[in-house]
Design a protein around this nucleic acid. Structure first.
Length: 272
DNA sequence: TGAGTATGTTCAG
DNA sequence: TGAACCTACTCAT
């Protein structure tokens, strides 16, 4: 489930598993073979994530850049090493574990300058200490684009995907089609703080759970409680099911070719 | 077991 | 705007 929390979790995991050791790097599938040869046997010095991008630093000007896209996955398996199954783009073998990368959108060897260029085009990442929410606010507060667009724009906020978008907007009672410039400063401050908390929780748990029944007194009484516990989200992919707070059926539409979910009652359109 | 669907991004037309 | 990438999960059979 590769939204930002997944990549930060991977960066943390790979740091623990592989940093400071020479890593056997290969490309069983072959599509990364030439670059794998360059990296093979080098010591992994540093890992980091920015939004949905993962970076492994193998010394000066040798950066492995991975973007999982929609399908990409990284396995985490204790040694001994097993024969690769399926299309493995990249395999990392460390002292105790190995990791197979399948189905990424990007897996490439880049320079420090190229890595810097990727960082430069990405917006504020709620999971990074160097995040600059003021820059995101400057973009949002000047924009006519709807919040649904701005929250998924990786050059504004890096790491938020479709699930966190739906959930954050619900939790703050915000209409997805509200123009950015109609958002009030205090609403933005609360939204950003919540994104930081939600994504951190996602890193900790390894999954997206924005709904903590014990922490939300607004939730309807049973029998809806059953549904509450089943899914752990308020709006995402709950089309037609009753809103867990007010009972209104969750609405769905396509917005820029992505699914958008919201509660028309809890997230009312602003009065004209 | 097979069909359907998806959390994302880039590129061709 | 639509196709491509080509994995993993859920649900129906």
């Amino acid at each position: 489930m590769p939204e930002g929390h997944t990549l930060h979790r991977l960066a943390r995991l790979h740091r623990r598993r592989y940093r400071g050791h020479p890593i056997a790097v290969s490309s069983p599938q072959g599509r990364f073979a030439t670059s794998a040869e360059v990296l093979d046997g080098r010591v992994l010095e540093r890992t980091e994530a920015h939004g949905k991008h993962l970076f492994h630093h193998y010394g000066p000007d040798l950066v492995l850049h991975v973007h999982l896209g929609l399908y990409g996955t990284f396995s985490d398996v204790p040694r001994p090493v097993e024969p690769p199954r399926g299309l493995v783009r990249l395999r990392l073998v460390g002292p105790s574990h190995f990791a197979d990368l399948r189905g990424p959108t990007a897996c490439e060897l880049i320079s420090d300058v190229e890595a810097a260029a990727i960082h430069a085009r990405l917006g504020a990442d709620p999971l990074r200490r160097d995040a600059d929410p003021e820059r995101a606010w400057a973009r949002i507060s000047r924009s006519r684009a709807p919040l649904a667009t701005l929250l998924m724009d990786q050059s504004v906020i890096a790491g938020v995907g479709n699930v966190y978008r739906a959930e954050a907007l619900f939790r703050h009672g915000l209409d997805p089609l509200l123009p950015g410039r109609a958002l009030r400063r205090e609403q933005w401050d609360a939204l950003w703080a919540d994104l930081v908390a939600l994504l951190r929780e996602g890193v900790r748990r390894g999954k997206i759970e924005t709904l903590r029944p014990e922490h939300d007194p607004r939730l309807l009484a049973p029998p809806d409680r059953g549904a509450v516990c089943a899914r752990r989200v308020y709006a995402y992919r709950r089309t037609g099911q009753p809103c867990l707070v007010c009972g209104t059926p969750i609405a769905h539409s396509e917005h820029l070719a992505r699914n958008l979910f919201w509660c028309p009652t809890c997230q009312p359109a602003a009065a004209a």
